[in-house]
Measured scan of single mutants.
Amino acid sequence: MGSVRTNRYSIVSSEEDGMKLATMAVANGFGNGKSKVHTRQQCRSRFVKKDGHCNVQFINVGEKGQRYLADIFTTCVDIRWRWMLVIFCLAFVLSWLFFGCVFWLIALLHGDLDTDYKDDDDKSKVSKACVSEVNSFTAAFLFSIETQTTIGYGFRCVTDECPIAVFMVVFQSIVGCIIDAFIIGAVMAKMAKPKKRNETLVFSHNAVIAMRDGKLCLMWRVGNLRKSHLVEAHVRAQLLKSRITSEGEYIPLDQIDINVGFDSGIDRIFLVSPITIVHEIDEDSPLYDLSKQDIDNADFEIVVILEGMVEATAMTTQCRSSYLANEILWGHRYEPVLFEEKHYYKVDYSRFHKTYEVPNTPLCSARDLAEKKYILSNANSFCYENEVALTSKEEEEDSENGVPESTSTDSPPGIDLHNQASVPLEPRPLRRESEIGSRR
């Protein structure tokens, strides 16, 4: 089982795998120059863009038009607004034209077009017409509009002379109601789609790998820009990579689940303020055997998904993003964004995407760390350097704002901070800030 798991979770494809794949392509008759073999020097295209759209195009789909027309309502909801407006206008105009032609044909076959009612006051002739005051196609078209929109100006009306005319008036009224219901329903469904809710759900630009509770963890940050909550919010993550099976089958995008606390339930989050999602790199993680150097040379993509129900409509929305291997910062942490004021908490989104480097973060893999092949620094050293990194950030910001350097908390000259780390230190809580992250 261990060997199978290692093969499945191998992220960085070796040169031997690339040569094996190329040999397979030639042997199977696919070596026509169009096949692409992804190596370390040639990274694959992003499968999920940063804005959440999937970078996929469908080609050679059989009976595409028929399949889309069979699900016309979903098609109308998914198309762009400009095409929705075109369909909206065409549906009414074509129905008016169709029934206008029908009423014109009825008048033509009944002989109503030969009668001039402007110079004739004989009401008996008017009563013999199928539709009064309809003696041309324009008049028939206007009567069709008046019937379907129930305008009723009063000059044109159907008589009991022709039952077919009466039937067409009733039929057009029913068709008009159906068109109204369909168009209004599609427009309302399109307006109520929770897709735009994703514009106020954000992911951090970069993911980070750092120590948390004595273990290497992959972390990324999510935030909600609205005050309205995302009900039943939960997160998922998958690692996408290519691999070759033991039988020699090439899988271009193998999807591997990344555990973010599904078993323990901590994948469900209360997204009021930005939260750091934590994936513990343990023996079940696809990143277990990867060191910093392996991450730098790897070719994979981590897709992160945030799902929840919109509070206003109770409709489920899904926000997506992805991180390539070069977008994962090893040995970094996110800057705090949640600050405790006197009577409330304040979230500073200008710090949302910012990170700071944490010294002495192990550069080895989580496996080597678990097997004690890498000796961690003293816990006080880690905490102290973590505090120094934050303090230096604040000093830089104070210097930019014009604060005198004498007010900063610099260490005395001639003292090495790293050498001082081995000395037991008193706890130094942050002056006014605390970061709330997901705790395992």
Rank of each mutant, 00 (worst) to 15 (best):
S3C: 02
T6S: 14
Y9E: 15
S10H: 04
S10R: 06
I11P: 09
V12F: 02
S13F: 03
G18V: 04
G18H: 07
G18D: 07
G18E: 05
L21F: 09
M24D: 13
A25R: 11
A25P: 15
A25S: 15
V26N: 12
N28V: 05
N28K: 06
G31A: 12
G33P: 13
G33N: 12
K36I: 11
H38A: 12
T39C: 08
Q41K: 03
Q42P: 12
G52E: 01
H53L: 07
N55P: 09
N55L: 04
I59T: 15
N60P: 10
G62M: 13
G65E: 04
Q66S: 12
Y68R: 09
D71R: 15
I72R: 15
F73D: 15
T74C: 12
T75C: 04
I79E: 04
R80W: 03
W81K: 07
L85C: 06
F88P: 04
F88S: 06
L90D: 02
F92P: 09
F92N: 06
F92Q: 07
W96I: 14
L97M: 06
F98N: 02
F98M: 14
F99A: 01
C101H: 05
V102Y: 01
F103G: 01
I106T: 14
I106E: 06
A107V: 04
L109K: 15
H110W: 01
G111T: 05
D114Q: 14
D114E: 05
T115F: 06
T115A: 06
D116T: 15
K118D: 01
D119K: 00
D120K: 00
D121L: 15
V126T: 11
V126I: 13
V126G: 03
S127P: 07
S136A: 01
T138M: 03
A140Y: 02
F143G: 00
S144L: 01
I145Q: 03
E146L: 02
T147M: 03
Q148H: 02
T150C: 08
T150M: 03
I151C: 03
T159C: 02
D160V: 02
E161L: 01
P163T: 06
M168E: 00
V169M: 11
V170E: 01
F171H: 01
F171E: 01
I174M: 04
I174W: 10
G176H: 04
I178S: 10
D180G: 14
D180Q: 09
A181E: 11
F182G: 03
I184D: 02
V187F: 11
A189P: 08
K190N: 07
A192F: 13
K193W: 10
P194T: 06
K195E: 06
R197F: 10
N198L: 10
L201R: 01
V202N: 07
F203E: 01
H205W: 06
H205R: 13
H205T: 10
H205G: 03
H205S: 14
N206S: 07
N206H: 13
D213Y: 04
G214A: 13
K215W: 03
C217H: 08
C217R: 08
C217K: 09
M219Q: 12
M219T: 03
W220K: 00
V222R: 00
L225F: 15
H229N: 09
V231M: 09
E232K: 13
A233P: 12
A233W: 13
L239R: 00
K241G: 09
I244F: 12
S246D: 13
E249C: 11
I251Q: 12
P252H: 15
L253Q: 14
D254N: 10
I256L: 11
I256K: 07
D257E: 12
I258Q: 01
G265C: 04
D267P: 06
L271S: 04
L271I: 06
S273N: 07
I275P: 04
I277Y: 03
H279C: 00
H279S: 01
E280C: 10
E280V: 09
I281S: 01
D282M: 09
D284L: 12
D289M: 08
D289R: 04
K292F: 11
Q293M: 12
A298R: 03
F300D: 00
V303Y: 06
V303C: 08
V303T: 12
V304H: 02
L306K: 02
E307W: 05
T317F: 15
R320A: 10
L324Y: 09
L324Q: 11
A325D: 02
E327K: 00
I328A: 00
L329S: 04
L329A: 05
H332Q: 12
E335H: 05
P336Q: 14
F339G: 11
F339I: 15
K342L: 04
F352H: 00
H353W: 03
H353K: 00
K354Y: 06
V358Q: 12
P359Q: 14
P359T: 12
L363G: 07
C364L: 05
R367M: 01
R367K: 15
D368M: 08
L369D: 01
A370F: 05
A370N: 07
A370I: 09
K373D: 15
K373G: 14
Y374K: 14
I375H: 13
L376R: 14
S377M: 04
A379Y: 06
S381W: 05
C383L: 13
E385A: 07
V388F: 12
A389Y: 12
L390D: 15
E394D: 09
E395D: 10
E405Y: 03
E405P: 07
T409F: 09
P412N: 14
I415P: 14
H418Q: 13
A421Q: 11
S422D: 11
S422V: 07
S422M: 10
P427N: 11
L430W: 07
R431L: 14
R431M: 13
R432A: 15
R432D: 14
E433R: 07
E435N: 14
E435G: 05
